[in-house]
Nucleic acid binder design. Structure first.
Length: 368
RNA sequence: GUGGGUAUGGCGUAGUUGGCUAACGCGCCAGAUUGUGGUUCUGGAGACCGUGGGUUCAAGUCCCACUACCCACC
């Protein structure tokens, strides 16, 4: 199932499997610039439709030349549709057939977003890949609710595709070649997942995502859902596992045919001082690192480790709440993820992914 | 040198008229966090209450001495 591929876009080639670096509001939290992203081998930046819509606004960003010109990131950008916010900001919304009524988490302003609005916003942003507007039901949702939710998500997907085609054909479109990925849902109900995958596979989209996972179900359930979904999606288009996950999750998901990933873990954990190494995570704030002169990871090629910055200095920066500490920790973690993906691609190229998977999982569970 | 005050886990403090396993914040340790609020949450270890005596059924709480530190006056 595991596969190695190369996706060509107007903003450059994406080598898969790939991990997209999360920049929800148009910036990596922790203070990394577009230049920084180049220095840690980032391929794709991921931004959020809802967050950019409520601040600063997609129309203004369009006036600034689109998200690429605005952020100075010239490589591929994937924009999430705002669908996840229906789930994560659930106390602030109301779902109907036309779309979703939000109350802005910034100023309480009323916002309506449906498939058409989401596509228009993403078109204004001019991202490389737009995500369909979907609903992400809770993992423990009842079957009857999931059935009607998925049916609606399918209808929304059809509307997304139609609107995207219309927008791409307009004269003044920021990115007339914007791609659209559909999203599979169905919680942990295998037959709903499978049926939905078959249905959206016929829509000939540019890529397909598996959404609604890592929201409370077990790892086994998650892997099982992937196994019951990916085989029914088109073989020659990329698959994207949304919001996942740990290095272990990624290695297992690649094994089951996933090509795209994104997750807040490397950046959020970086901000909390939990750093990734080849042998598990290290908590840089711990007292044991107070006078540790070694870099985070001896084998790491990131700018922080290569720059000779010690664990002791990083601990000091984090304890002293210095912005540089966040920046260094996030930079290291994202480099770790990007490098992990490079290793995975190398193993696939060499035809030894099975062996790599076993060895890597063993290493990661070893402990620092 | 004289007068006054304070001494409680690593640090800062609570400890009612002496009475159950000495409390809290920070720190420390261990977890949680999966299409991002740089948050937040959950556990855990750690002091026999400056030292030595005394009063009492019972003292961190009262008395005496000593030691250290702080303030004021010389």
């Amino acid at each position: 199932m595991a596969k190695r591929a190369r996706m060509t876009t107007v903003h450059g080639v994406i080598e898969t499997p790939v991990f997209m670096n999360v920049a929800t509001a148009g910036a990596i939290k922790g203070g990394l610039s577009a230049d920084d992203l180049h220095s840690i081998n980032t391929q794709v930046m991921l931004c959020n439709t809802y967050h950019l819509h409520v601040r600063t606004g997609d129309v203004k960003i369009r006036q600034m030349g689109g998200l690429h010109a605005f952020t100075r990131w010239d490589r591929p950008i994937l924009t999430d549709s705002g669908g996840f916010q229906v789930f994560s900001l659930s106390d602030l919304r109301k779902i109907k057939e036309e779309g979703v009524s939000f109350k802005s988490h910034i100023d309480g302003a009323h916002i309506f977003m449906g498939p058409e609005q989401s596509m228009q916003i993403q078109s204004n942003l001019g991202s490389t890949i737009a995500m369909a507007f979907d609903e992400c039901p809770p993992a423990l949702a009842e079957r009857s609710y999931v059935e009607q939710s998925v049916a609606r998500t399918t209808r929304w997907l059809e509307r997304c595709r139609k609107e995207m085609n219309r927008l791409n054909s307009l004269e003044e479109t920021v990115n007339p070649q914007q791609l659209l990925f559909g999203i599979n849902q169905g919680a942990v109900y295998q037959d709903i997942r499978t049926d939905h995958a078959k249905a959206i596979a016929e829509m000939e989209l540019d890529g397909y995502a598996v959404g609604g996972l890592a929201v409370g179900e077990t790892h086994e359930q998650m892997y099982s859902v992937i196994e019951n979904t990916v085989p029914y999606l088109p073989k020659d288009t990329p698959t994207y596992l949304m919001g996942v996950g740990t290095p272990e999750n990624i290695i297992e998901a690649v094994y089951r045919g996933i090509d795209f990933f994104d997750c807040v873990y490397p950046s959020r954990n970086g901000r909390h001082g939990n750093l990734y190494t080849d042998h598990g995570t290290l908590r840089i704030r711990n007292a044991r690192y107070e006078t540790d002169t070694r870099p985070i990871d001896e084998n790491c090629g990131c700018p922080v480790c290569r720059g000779g910055y010690s664990r002791a200095y990083l601990r000091h920066l984090m304890k002293a709440d210095e912005a540089l500490g966040l920046r260094f920790c996030v930079m290291h973690n994202l480099y770790f993820y990007n490098h992990l993906m490079q290793e995975i691609r190398d193993a696939l190229d060499a035809g030894c992914y099975e062996a790599y998977r076993k060895r890597k999982l063993a290493d990661l569970s070893e402990g620092v």
